[in-house]
Simulated scan of single mutants.
Amino acid sequence: MHLGRHISEQFNIELESLRTHVLAMGGLVEEQLSLSLQALSQQDSQLASKVHRDDQKVNQREMAIGEACTRIIAKRQPTARDLRLVIAIIKTISDLERIGDGAKKLARVAQDSFSHAQAGLLVSVEMLGRIAVDMLHQVLDAFARMDVKAAAQIYQMDKLIDQEHKKLIDQLVAFMKQDVDSIAKVMLIMTGVHTIERVGDRCQNICEYIIYFVEGKDVRHDSHYLTSLL
């Protein structure tokens, strides 16, 4: 979606640069999340360590984009649509940074050791995680195009994540009942499962920011409006 042109060509360049940097940050977060799931399913501590090391890159990008947004607000004093874009960007990078933190948490779980039976549970965790990665990938694509309809459709994907999340929690609880000695390890796996579920919530937030920018409407508590966009 075209952002609209301004008399100041430099302002156009600044706005486009902001979006480009958000997408670059999003791509890095998506990679981090994917690698953390791979590290978890394969119990690869070296790969998990890489996720930890690269988390600083995500944090640095968030800070740099946030500072750029602050400069634009101070220098350009954007109004209406431009201000909505800057606000949407500020909120989006915050959620992306938290997804990055989630990837780091998953990597921390991956650095622990699990029995063969417990490791079997990690396969189900990865399957849930791949749904979340796909949702993140799609929402970044929708952000690149500022596609409201796509955002409304992607928003609904969280229902699948919630359903699979509940099934997996039930599976973990059943496992602990059968093997009480595994409780500590399975509870650790459960923290990873909850972390993945939160990724879906963060992606929903970004969908809302897209709609806010394009439509100028806050849809956080307006499910009827979201449905009307489908």
Rank of each mutant, 00 (worst) to 15 (best):
I154L: 07
A150S: 08
E126P: 07
V133H: 01
G129F: 02
K185C: 02
M176K: 03
D170L: 07
I210N: 02
I154F: 09
V139Y: 00
I169W: 06
H165V: 04
F143C: 07
V139C: 06
I210T: 08
Q204A: 04
V148Y: 07
M157T: 08
A142G: 06
L136Y: 01
D170T: 14
V133S: 07
D201L: 10
A142M: 05
F143W: 12
L122Y: 01
E215M: 14
T191P: 06
I211D: 00
V186R: 02
L168A: 00
D158L: 12
L160F: 09
I169R: 06
Q163E: 09
Y209L: 08
L160E: 13
M190L: 11
H137C: 10
L128M: 12
I189D: 02
F213R: 02
A132D: 07
D141T: 12
V199P: 01
K167Q: 07
A132R: 01
M187H: 03
V125Y: 02
D170I: 03
R202E: 04
D179W: 01
I206R: 09
G192A: 10
I196V: 15
D162F: 09
C203T: 04
A184E: 10
V193H: 05
D134W: 09
D181H: 12
D201R: 03
Q171I: 05
I183S: 11
V148S: 05
I154D: 02
Q153F: 03
R130K: 11
A132P: 02
Q138T: 06
K166H: 10
I169N: 03
D181N: 15
Q153C: 09
M190A: 13
I210E: 01
V123F: 12
Q178E: 14
L121M: 11
V125D: 01
K166F: 09
G120W: 08
A184F: 04
A132H: 07
R198M: 11
K166T: 15
L136F: 05
L172Q: 04
H137K: 13
A152E: 03
V148F: 09
E215L: 11
T191Y: 10
I206M: 15
Y212V: 08
K167M: 06
D179E: 13
L136I: 14
L140C: 08
M176N: 08
S182H: 05
I169P: 04
K185M: 06
N205Q: 15
R202F: 03
Q153I: 05
D158M: 13
E208T: 13
Y155I: 01
L122I: 10
F175G: 04
V186C: 14
F175C: 13
Q204K: 15
M176I: 12
V173M: 15
Y212M: 10
D147R: 12
G192W: 00
E197K: 07
E215W: 05
A144R: 13
D170C: 08
D181W: 07
V214R: 11
S124C: 09
M146P: 00
K185Q: 12
Y155A: 05
Y209M: 15
V214L: 06
Q204Y: 03
D147V: 09
Y209Q: 13
M157Q: 12
Q171G: 05
A174N: 11
